[in-house]
Simulated scan of single mutants.
Amino acid sequence: MKGPYPEIQGGGSLILAWQVRNKRVLVVGGGEVAAGRIVNVLNADAKVLVVSPRERLNEEVAYRIEQKQVDYIDRKFEPSDLDGVDMVLTAVDDPEASTQIYKLCHEKKIPANIADVPPECDFYFGSVHRDGPLQIMVSTNGNGPKMANIVRRQIAASLPNNIGAAIQKIGVLRRKLRKVAPLQEEGPKRMQWMSKVCESWPLDDICDMTEEDMEVLLGYYRPNCIPSLEEVRLSEPSGAYNGPFLI
């Protein structure tokens, strides 16, 4: 019999949004796989150090170095490269060297990803769809990266074209709401009210919402009402809200 709670399905990964802003990430290697890893961590605002002999750099990695988007050391990996590093990504065609790097990272408790060697990975890279603040990752837990890419494309094709822009606007509204209702005990009400906005407003209306519309909409937070965008704009004929719910 099934229990009242979700059944445990072992063998998965804990999928997280890892915040690496301003963290030091070491990338060992300069080929195509390294290029993809570099883009991933630069998009997350990490500080990247690439270690690889110059003759092994592909055009994209060489471009990142030339544009000073990453720091660079022109040689093979040395153990001292791990000093002060928060994360290590290796992408070299040398299994023995990769294993040695992983062992050193393990000793120093530095999380590492060894490309194409799942048993020597503390975390995996999935196939990611990006649209502004929206990120969707599909992981096969190292079983089939190509299949992850196929699934990711299918998911992306089913999303509305304006979903990223709508999320951006909701983020702005949410930050404004925290200024209106900053107290910790208001957290549940804030979340409930924001949920109602997301559920009741069409994506097009969310995208069309201006800063002025947001200020008026926030006037409905205290009475816990969710007007439509049309109602919001009828409340601001002169660009300022004069209705009964002004905070």
Rank of each mutant, 00 (worst) to 15 (best):
K2G: 06
G3S: 12
P4G: 06
Q9I: 13
G10H: 10
G11P: 10
L14A: 14
L16P: 02
A17R: 13
W18V: 04
W18H: 12
R21V: 05
N22K: 12
K23C: 01
V25D: 05
L26M: 07
V28Q: 08
G30F: 02
E32T: 13
V33C: 06
G36L: 11
V39H: 08
V39Q: 13
N40M: 03
V41Y: 01
L42H: 06
N43F: 00
N43R: 15
V48S: 04
V50N: 08
P53Y: 12
P53A: 11
L57S: 11
E59Q: 11
V61H: 03
A62T: 11
Q67D: 07
K68N: 13
Q69G: 09
Y72A: 13
I73T: 02
R75V: 03
R75K: 10
F77P: 02
P79S: 09
V85R: 04
V85K: 05
D86W: 01
M87Q: 03
V88W: 02
L89Q: 04
T90M: 06
T90H: 02
V92M: 14
P95R: 14
E96P: 03
K103M: 09
L104K: 06
L104G: 04
L104P: 03
H106T: 11
E107W: 00
K108I: 03
K108W: 00
K109C: 01
P111S: 04
A112T: 00
A112E: 01
I114A: 15
A115Y: 05
V117T: 12
P119R: 13
P119S: 13
F123A: 05
Y124T: 14
G126D: 02
G126R: 03
V128F: 01
V128N: 10
R130H: 13
P133H: 09
P133T: 14
S139W: 03
T140L: 07
N141A: 15
G142D: 07
N143Y: 02
G144S: 15
M147F: 05
M147Y: 08
M147T: 12
A148M: 01
A148Y: 00
N149H: 08
N149F: 00
V151N: 08
V151F: 07
R152W: 02
R153F: 04
P160Y: 11
N162G: 08
N162A: 08
I163A: 07
G164R: 12
A165W: 01
I170N: 06
L173F: 03
R174Y: 03
R178Q: 14
R178V: 01
R178K: 11
R178P: 00
K179L: 15
V180W: 02
P182Q: 12
Q184S: 14
E185K: 14
E185S: 15
E185L: 11
K189D: 11
R190W: 02
R190M: 10
M191L: 14
W193C: 06
V197M: 07
S200G: 02
W201Q: 09
D204G: 09
D204M: 08
I206Y: 00
I206Q: 06
I206M: 11
C207P: 00
D208C: 14
D208Y: 04
D208G: 10
M209Q: 08
T210P: 03
E211M: 10
E212S: 14
M214L: 05
M214A: 11
Y220G: 03
Y221F: 15
C225D: 10
C225Y: 13
P227M: 07
P227D: 02
E230Y: 11
E231M: 14
L234Y: 05
L234D: 15
S235Y: 02
Y241K: 10
P244Q: 12
P244F: 07
